[in-house]
Design a protein around this nucleic acid. Structure first.
Length: 316
RNA sequence: CGCGGGGUAGAGCAGUUCGGUAGCUCGUCGGGCUCAUAACCCGGAGGUCGAGGGUUCAAGUCCCUCCCCCGCAA
């Protein structure tokens, strides 16, 4: 079977490897164009591109596949297209090309958490269970028929980064099972229940600004869900931005949100929230590396009594 | 050449402007106090100051080269 894989970040790599290892004829890989990234603005290849090149699979990087990638895809004459965090929307014209159709590996239990950041949102919403879904892609955004699903528990304190790493290989397994069953013709196919559907938007950098007026429990979930990108930050002193890598709930004796309840190497860093307080366990100052909050405080005495309380930002 | 911060004891930092015996907080080891302690008191060990070269009577500090780490922006 001729398969074309479309994916970009690390999440898609296990799926691509699995297709390859399962003996599928992966005739091409589509991924986002190399972009200048990191220090020095050097061009970076996506993880999926690197993986494809290692295996000698032709790589295509249209800026917008529905505009300048159609002919390339058609010429590959795929029986099946597989997407896993590709990052571009497919047009009907694209979807019509593969004989069998396009299977998407989505990292939530659809129809919940449609959208591009399902793992992050599931954690931010305080879920304890999520999962992966394989589905037939249609023109809508994550609205196609569900093929197979597998549930996965979210561990206490787990970050989006950790959960993503854990889910990617499971998604790959489910993908292979889906393809086997599609080949045999016994793959279940269930339309999504629109009444139970939920959609969550793309992550934006501003979402990382901690709003201390939220309940501590919520803040902690957001910190987990927004790791590693965009990360969670607060501001104190003269605009110094502190990135929070790890936090937990703590007691608040009744101070107003943003008040610094303690900031020393002995008691750690605790900041009052709307409900309860947030104990910051691991942080990162501008120019510095991430470190244990107490270590930070040992070398950086803090005299501020409060943090800046940011204005309302989208999705509390 | 996108902008910027940094590498000093096991950890986190100061010291670099204006060269002159390397310091702070914590940890660690030993001792003391205490019903007890992650608390307190006394004492000790522990550093090629990222690497190499240069200037100098003398370099963590000044000059040159290199390596590594990190933030922003994308």
């Amino acid at each position: 079977m001729r398969v074309v894989f479309l994916g970009t970040p690390e999440f898609g790599v296990p799926s691509l490897k699995a297709l390859f290892d399962a003996g599928c004829e992966v005739v091409g890989v589509f991924t986002q164009p190399d972009k200048p990234k990191g220090r020095g603005n050097k061009l970076q290849k996506s993880p999926v591109k690197l993986c494809a090149q290692e295996r000698g699979i032709p790589v295509f990087q249209p800026v917008k596949i529905r505009l300048d990638g159609v002919e390339a895809l058609r010429s590959l004459r795929p029986d099946l297209c597989v997407t896993a965090a590709f990052g571009q929307i497919l047009s009907q014209e694209i979807l019509d090309i593969p004989r069998i159709g396009t299977v998407n590996v989505h990292s939530s239990l659809l129809p919940k958490y449609r959208g591009s950041a399902p793992i992050n949102w599931a954690i931010m919403e305080g879920e304890t269970v999520t999962g992966v879904t394989t589905m037939m892609t249609d023109k809508g955004l994550d609205t196609g028929d569900i093929l197979l699903q597998r549930t996965i528990g979210i561990l206490p304190g787990e970050t989006a980064e950790e959960l993503t790493a854990r889910m990617a290989p499971i998604g790959a397994e489910l993908l292979i099972e889906t393809i086997r069953r599609l080949e045999k013709g016994d793959c279940p196919r269930t339309p999504q229940d629109e009444d139970k559907a939920s959609y969550f938007p793309m992550l934006k950098k501003e979402m990382g600004e901690i709003d201390f007026r939220m309940p501590a429990r919520k803040i902690v979930c957001r910190v987990r869900g927004l790791t590693p990108w965009p990360g969670s930050v607060f501001e104190w002193g003269e605009g110094e931005q502190i990135k929070v890598w790890h936090a937990e709930e703590a007691e608040n004796p009744g101070k107003k949100p943003g008040a610094i309840l303690s900031a020393d190497a002995k008691d750690g860093l605790v900041i009052a929230a709307g409900e309860g307080a947030v104990r910051i366990l691991e942080l990162q100052a501008p120019g510095g590396k991430r470190m244990n909050a107490k270590d930070y405080l040992r070398g950086h005495p803090v005299s501020y009594t409060e943090c800046r309380v940011t204005e309302e930002n989208s999705h509390g």
